Amino acid sequence: MDLWQIIVLAIIQGLTEFLPISSSAHLILPSALLGWQDQGLAFDVAVHVGSLCAVLSYFRRDVFRMGNAWVRDTARRTVTEDSRLAWAVILGTIPAGLAGLVLNDFVEDELRSGWVIAATTIGFGLLLWWSDAAGSRRRQLSSVTLRDALLIGLAQALALIPGTSRSGITITAALFLGLRREDAARFSFWLSIPLITAAGGLKTLELIEQGGATDWYAIAWGTLLSFISALLCIHLFLRFLERIGLMPYVIYRLALGALLILVLW
């Protein structure tokens, strides 16, 4: 890959990993419009590492607090708010993890088409709008139960379908459960940590098995740019979410889905 391709794909990954707008829809457009070849497994690992470092860096205090409480309270067989939230993140990760193990090959073979991505980009965009309009938006993170976590985790499993958007579907589920926008987004970001870690680990194992030469230049730039764009994305998204709401992302998804249909027609 040349530097321009590295920059575009790394920034796309960093931004779309956490915005509710579908990373797969954005990654299909450059190849369709510009004729770019697949970026390769090593680059996928690099941009996932960058995104993971960004979310860990931004939520480092939350991660440390919940992790410390989980270890302490598990040993003592007690439950506090922080350890309960840690259990909620763990429970919310399980459905997507299991679905990935069972259905990954089917999704890769049968659902990774431009038409599927266009349909899900539009369909789940409308669902995001409905959840924002219908949800009470009164509950805080401290009220999240294990049942809530399981329901959001089941919704997260739908993100295996290309075009769904992992952050979009988890925010949608959390809003339907009555969480405030910022709290829904924050819990969605927390859920991304174990999932990105697992996905990156699996891709790393695949990369080791494949062997071959590695383009360290592309990996270094991909990791750095993905980290910067993801960190900036998380900060700005949370800062302006309550002010602008989710309608701009809904409109964007509808426009993107329409553009995909035009490109594929």
Rank of each mutant, 00 (worst) to 15 (best):
G35W: 01
W36S: 08
L52W: 12
G40C: 04
S23M: 15
L29H: 09
L56C: 15
L19F: 13
L19Y: 11
C53Y: 01
Q39V: 00
G40I: 00
E17G: 04
P20H: 06
W36F: 10
S51P: 03
L33M: 14
G35T: 02
S24I: 11
I28H: 12
L19G: 13
V55G: 10
C53G: 14
F43E: 11
A46F: 04
A54K: 09
H48M: 08
Q39C: 13
S51H: 09
A46I: 05
G50K: 02
I21D: 13
L19V: 05
V47N: 11
G40F: 00
L33A: 11
A54C: 06
A54P: 11
A42R: 01
E17P: 03
I21P: 11
L52M: 07
V49G: 06
F43Q: 07
G35P: 06
P30S: 02
Q39T: 01
S51R: 02
A25V: 05
L41Q: 03
L19I: 02
L34W: 12
D44C: 00
V49A: 14
C53W: 14
E17D: 14
V47L: 10
S23I: 03
D38K: 01
L19H: 07
S51Q: 07
A25K: 08
V47Q: 14
V49D: 12
S22K: 09
C53T: 14
A54R: 09
A25G: 15
A25L: 08
A32C: 01
Q39A: 09
Q37R: 00
A42K: 03
H26N: 10
L33V: 13
A32V: 04
L56H: 01
F18D: 11
P30N: 07
Q37C: 01
H26L: 04
L27G: 13
H26M: 02
S24R: 08
P20A: 07
S31P: 03
L33Q: 09
L33P: 03
L41Y: 04
I12L: 15
A42W: 09
W36Y: 08
V55S: 14
G50N: 10
D38T: 00
L52S: 07
F43P: 11
